[in-house]
Structure formats: structure tokens, C-alpha cells
Amino acid sequence: MFEQLFEDKFYTLAFLVIGVIGFFVGFMRLRRRRMVENIPTSTVRGLALGLVELIGKARAISKTGAPFTSPLTGTPCTYYHFLIERLVRSGRSSHWEKIAEGDSADCPFWLIDDTGKIPVLPKGAEIDIKLKFQHRTRGRSAPPKLSEFMTKYNLMRYRNYILSFKEWHIKNEQKIYVLGTAKKSHDFLNQHKKKLVKRLEELKSDPLKMSKLDLNKDGRIDQQEWDLAIAKVEQELLEESLAGGQQAESADVIVAKGDVEKLFMISDSSQKELISQLGFEAGLGIIGGGVLALYTFWSLMRYICLHF
């Protein structure tokens, strides 16, 4: 009986499951909406430990104040996430398969408001930012910046496939919304500074490396060349941290994913936009999922009554 039911009504059963899941997910979105709506926005100065909502500008944590660059577009940013997929064809159907993905979630950035600044560690956050770059092309005819990236990360073996490149990022000084846990943490800023100083000392003690920094070949390293060197070293430290999957350490208080409160959101939408988006998702899930589940269940019942 179940085998025949499954064969004849596979899609109906699938929609029933989707409907029920959508119904419960809708309630989860409703809970999230109420949290965003009910937690007042704190100022950095008046911030207390625990779940906090902050609104401010994102700024890169670096000695020179220069943000790092996103890998696909080279945009100066405080956070990025990229995804590269290839189009796989099997018979008449085709699907996208992920070949590379990465983000800078291990690298904190400052959140700055009128009263102060605090580091935000995006690791583990639900990041809701708009897609900033999308490009589809055959691998071998990818623009120079993307080809460079493919070579650097050993992706040239996919050059004969149709590839999709996507990038999301938070630009330096971009206004963001953060809902996360303010907590005491290890002193990452000091450790970061120590690593940077050590690396710069190593650089200074190597004449060959120093000569490479002299871009205008006037025989001395001027302030601009030295700032560029610092920015480069910081970029290297960041890449090493990403490659090693190290968790960034933090200043006295940091906003990150909580140990008890798991809710952690970062968004480039305004609070109003977030509330209406979550409200729409909740409504769609509860009403849409509920109606779909009831309709498919009714359809299955009718089928069972007629055939068994």
C-alpha cells in the first residue's frame, strides 16, 4: 500500500513534508522577528554584557586603518564571502556544484557608533548581506581578476566548465546591523599587534625584502612605501589566519556568537527592512506551509479512500 502510494503520490508526499517544515520554520522566523523588534538598540558606550543589538559603521581593524580586499572583486572591505560553482550536466538535467567557497569570518572588524567602537567577530553569525557581485562565464574566458584568483587557488582545472562567481561583502564604513552577544574574551588585539610587530621586525632585518619595498627606487623607504608594507603584512596575517582556520582573539569586550544565546546576526539591511523581511518569511512559512500541508494531506486522504 505504502509503496504504491509513494510511487503515485511522491510529489504530494514531498510537498506535505515541505509544508510541515515550512510551517515550523515560519514560527522560528516569527520568534526571530520578535527578538529583532523587542531588543532595544544599545550604544557602544552603554553596552552591557549579554545579548545586544548594535547599529553602526563597520571599519577594518588594522594598524593603518586600511581594510583588506575581497578576493574576487578586490573591493576594500571588512568582511567577505565568496562562492564559485561549476555547471555540471548529466543527460538532460544540469546542476551547479560548489568548487570553492570562503569567507573572512575569522577576522573581526570594528563596529563604530557615535559613542565608541567595539570589535565584532563574524564567526558563526547568520550573515544577511546583499549579493554584490555575480559573474557567469566559461572558466578559460574569465576576466583577468577572476583568472588570477583561479590560478592562485588552483582552480584552473575547471577552466572548461561554465563557472559562476558570487561575492558578498561589507565595505569599509558601511552601515550595518548586529544582533549578538557582548562577552569578555581573550586579548586578540594585543596578540594581533604583537604578531604584526614581530613580522615587521623580520622584514626590517632582511635587506633583500626591504629593497623590494622601495617602489620608486630612490634608495630609501618613505612613509607611503612603509604604510603599504604594513598593509601587505596585515593582509598576509589575515590570509594565514584564514588558511589555518584560527579563531581570532579579541579585545576586552567583543560581540560574537554567545555560548548560551546562539542568535547572532549581521546584516547590511536596516532594522525596519529586517523586521518586514522576517515578518514576510514568518507569514509565508506559517500560512503557506500550513495551507500546503493541509491541502496535500487532504489530497492523500482522498487518494487513499479511493484506491484502498
Binding site: 515550523f24 523587542n38 500550513g290 493541509l294 494531506f297 486522504m301
Partner: peptide
Amino acid sequence: MVAFFLFAFVFIVIGVMLYFVAIYNGLIRL
């Protein structure tokens, strides 16, 4: 058809309960 109405009833009751639980938890949190 009894099974359908039973399912629909249970489903709606669960929905209403979840909704009130969400409100209750929200108020307590506030």
C-alpha cells in the same frame, strides 16, 4: 475524511499553541 479533519484540527491547534507560546516567551523575555 474523519482522518483529514482530525489532522487539520490537530495542525491548527498546534499552530495556535505555538503562536501563544511565542507570545508568552516574548513577553517573559521583555
